[in-house]
Design a protein around this nucleic acid. Structure first.
Ligand code: FES
Ligand code: FES
Lengths: 159, 159
DNA sequence: TAGTTCTTGACAAAAATACTCGGAAAATAT
DNA sequence: ATATTTTCCGAGTATTTTTGTCAAGAACTA
């Protein structure tokens, strides 16, 4: 009882971690000429705790979004073109992709019989919506200011 | 330093509280014939802690979304037709509408000079997107299963 | 009156988030 | 070689948010 909805989360969680990540990568996208950018520089420019930022960038590096080299003149660099890096990817990596659909499946609860409650589809559709939106916007769009006025992609069916 | 982004949140926060609220109101919308539905019944049917649900329903009542009467045969009832109650309203009420735009404005930080950082518009647009989506779906849509395949409202401008 | 049921606020437990720390591994420069 | 710079890595702590409980009160009905 009342323990079953505990870990349910919307597919696309958004905390400062995700925001820091996008902010840092945006910074990286702007500084693309300098070969490698140091954590401390990003942290200072974007006003983020540099030790915290380490964690975040590390994840992004492990995921292959950025490359890092150590030692003097080291730092981080985008692994690919800014237009190829989508915001949804960044966030999914640092926030941790939610455990497959999130909700009821495992405990079999969340209102009785049919396995899924009346609101299931709603949250599902909402997640999909967000993911689509953020999956459509790249780092390049951000540094170019091409974010406003973006509509959802056309859908096959409609009411 | 690094204390400024702390309370920033996406405009539309979503926790179990919001989910419980929608679930409870959906239940209420289904039971519209019975004059008043008791907290304990909703809690049992939807498998929610009834003392916790009290808090949630109270907020919704104060906001005027539902009406409650005490005493025997008392309980809660929707204040208006299910098609007039939008999911966005429900969530905004119980989760607490984020403090106007959330981000930088107050502390003047979040990257330097221009007042707004490069990612500002992104989060702003995302919030708007979510709000539009959930503001479009009513309780009636949920109990009718009219949620899937809903597209975003048409936009005036597009790229 | 007695019993029911919402109302209210304050409080406590648990979880998630934000952030720190200490050191190891690589690369470079001297 | 050695010192220095910087990323890498695991673990730990502190803070905030979320989730839930409790106890007492107010309105309503029979
Ligand atoms: S959210 Fe209730 S079953 Fe998926
Ligand atoms: S989010 Fe950085 S300025 Fe609004």
């Amino acid at each position: 009882m009342h323990k079953n909805l505990k870990k349910i989360g919307i597919e696309m969680k958004l905390t400062t971690k995700g925001r820091y990540a996008v902010l840092a990568l945006t910074d990286l996208a702007l500084e693309r000429d300098e070969d490698f950018v140091k954590i401390s520089h990003i942290a200072m420019r974007q006003n983020i705790s540099s030790t915290y930022l380490e964690q975040i960038l590390l994840k992004l590096k492990r995921a292959g979004l950025i490359v890092g080299v150590r030692g003097p003149n080291g730092g981080y660099k985008l692994a690919s073109e800014p237009e190829k890096i989508m915001i949804a990817d960044i966030i999914n990596i640092v926030e941790g992709k939610m455990e497959a659909k999130g909700c009821v499946s495992k405990s079999g609860s969340c209102t009785g019989v049919s396995g899924r409650c009346m609101t299931h589809d709603l949250w599902d559709e909402l997640s999909r919506h967000i993911e689509l939106f953020l999956g459509q916007i790249s780092l390049r769009d951000i540094i170019k200011g091409n974010v406003l006025g973006r509509s959802s992609p056309p859908r096959a069916f409609d009411y």
